[in-house]
Nucleic acid binder design. Structure first.
Lengths: 238, 238
DNA sequence: CGAATTGTTGATACGTCTCAAAAATAGTGG
DNA sequence: CCACTATTTTTGAGACGTATCAACAATTCG
C-alpha cells in the first residue's frame, strides 16, 4: 500500500489549476472569452433535454458523460479530463442527448455556438477532428468491451487513465479515480462487484496497489502484457 | 416461413439504384462530381493504414466498417446503408484506422478532401453533424450492448435495421441481412451460436420468421415490447 | 455522532461461451 | 450443369465467467 496521504491531492495539484491553455482548440479560440463555470462534485454541466449549442472544454477536474433511456437504463459514455471536450455530440441538435456531471470540483470553459462559428474555419476543422477522435475512442472501447474479459477491461481502463494523466504531466503511476466502482463498472459493462474482484486480484498479483480510490500502477509493463490476449482467446472476436 | 423467392431481391430493387441524391450531404455537394466506385462483395472500400482524406457516401449496397488490433482482435463498428458516410472517423488523420468492406455489390461515392474543403462551410457543418450523429449512434449501441441480454440485443439489431430500411422506402418488415451470423455477433458482442439461438427463439415465439439471411419481422410491436426491460433488470445498468 | 453511501467478500444462479457434430448453403472448376 | 469443397447455419451438452443476492466493513456526509 502506498502513502495514502496523497489522497485527493491531485485535484489541488498546481498543474490542474494552471491557467495555460490545455489543448490547441483553446489556442485557436484565444480572443474569444469563454464563460467559465466552476462545478461542484455531482453538479451537472448540462443535462439531456436542455438546449444545446455550446461545447465545454474541461479545464480542471474530472467529469462523466452519460446516456439514459426512457426505460431506466443508463450508461456512462466516458470520463473527461482537462483538455477534453463535452457536448459536441449534440452538434446540429436542438437539445443535448446526454448528461455531463462533475465527479470532483472542476472548471469548464463554455464556448457558445456563436463564438465557434465566428472563430472561423480553422476552429470548425479542429472541432471536426475532435469529433472524429471521439469516434475512434468509442470504437476502441466497443472493441475492448466486446472482446476482453472483466479483468482485462479493468486493466485497460487503468492504463488508459494512467496514460491520459501522464500526458497531462502527472506521474501516470499514482492515480486517484474520482469515480465509484459502480461508475467504472457501468462504463466497462460490468457489475461493481466484478470491478472490485478484478482490482483485488490485480493487487494480489502485485500489479497494482489499491487504497480506496487511490490506485498505484506498480507494474505497467506487466499490466500491458495482460492485455495481449492468450492464443485461445485470439479467435474469440475474430 | 414467408416466400423465399424475395431472397436477395432488395439489392436489385429500383430504389437501391435510383440516381437521386440520398442525403442532404450529396445535395450540398452537387457540382462536385464524386468518384464513383462499384464494389463487389468482400472487396474493401478502404483499409486501415491506407492514406485517408476522402469520405465515402454509400449509394447502394451494404457495407461494414471494422476495427482491428495488433493482437488479432477485430470488431465491426457498424453496418452502413445508402446515405451513410464511411471514412469520416479518420478526419485529421494521415491514415485510416478502420476498414470498410462491401457485404454485397454496391456503389460508393468518394468525395476527396479537396472537394470537401472547397465546398464551403455548409458542407463542413454538415460533416460535423454527421460525425456527431455517429457518436450518438455509437453511444446508443454501447448502452444497449452493456445492458441488454443476448436476445434483446438481437431484437434491437433487427428493429434498427428494419427502421433504417423503412426510412429508405422499403417495407421494413422483410429484411435481408447481407451479413453472416458471425458478423452480427461480432457487432453485438455475442458469439454466432448465441445469435442463432436468439433468432430461433424469436421465431418460436412467432415474433420473426427466419429463412437464412431473409428475416421477416412478424410482430414489430411485440419485438419493441421485448426491449422494455423487466423490473428486475431495470436496476442492472443503474 | 448517526445515517447514507460506497467498498469488500462469499455463495450461488444463470447466461453465454466453448467445443463438437451435422445439416444447409454458397462457391468453384471441370 | 454437376460434383466437389468451403463456408455458413443449426442444435446439443457442458464448462466457465459474470451477475445476483446477501451480509458486513469502511468511508463520507450532514
Amino acid at each position: 500500500m502506498f502513502d495514502s496521504s496523497t489522497t485527493c491531492e491531485e485535484l489541488s495539484h498546481p498543474l490542474w489549476n494552471r491557467e495555460t491553455t490545455p489543448g490547441s482548440l483553446a489556442d485557436l479560440l484565444q480572443g474569444f472569452e469563454p464563460r467559465r463555470r466552476l462545478l461542484k462534485p455531482k453538479s451537472h454541466v448540462f443535462r439531456a433535454g436542455q438546449a444545446a449549442g455550446s461545447v465545454f472544454l474541461v479545464n480542471s477536474g474530472i467529469f462523466k458523460t452519460c446516456l439514459a433511456t426512457s426505460d431506466g437504463r443508463e450508461r456512462i459514455t466516458g470520463f473527461r479530463l482537462r483538455g477534453d471536450l463535452m457536448g459536441m455530440e449534440s452538434l446540429g441538435q436542438e437539445v443535448h442527448s446526454s448528461d455531463a456531471v462533475a465527479l470532483a470540483t472542476g472548471e469548464v470553459w463554455e464556448y457558445t455556438r456563436q463564438q465557434l462559428s465566428a472563430a472561423g474555419p480553422q476552429v470548425q476543422q479542429r472541432l471536426a477532428n475532435e469529433l472524429a477522435s471521439e469516434i475512434r475512442r468509442d470504437w476502441r472501447w466497443m472493441l475492448d468491451i466486446g472482446s476482453l474479459c472483466a479483468e482485462k477491461r479493468v486493466v485497460a481502463f487503468l492504463l488508459d487513465l494512467g496514460a491520459r494523466l501522464q500526458a497531462m504531466g502527472f506521474s501516470g503511476r499514482h492515480l486517484s479515480l474520482h469515480m465509484t466502482r459502480s461508475e467504472i463498472g457501468n462504463f466497462l459493462a460490468l457489475q461493481l462487484e466484478t470491478v472490485v474482484r478484478a482490482m483485488s486480484r490485480l493487487q494480489l498479483l502485485g500489479l497494482i496497489a489499491v487504497d480506496g480510490r487511490e490506485i498505484e500502477l506498480r507494474d505497467t509493463v506487466g499490466l500491458s502484457r495482460m492485455l495481449s490476449v492468450s492464443p485461445s482467446e485470439r479467435l474469440r472476436a475474430a
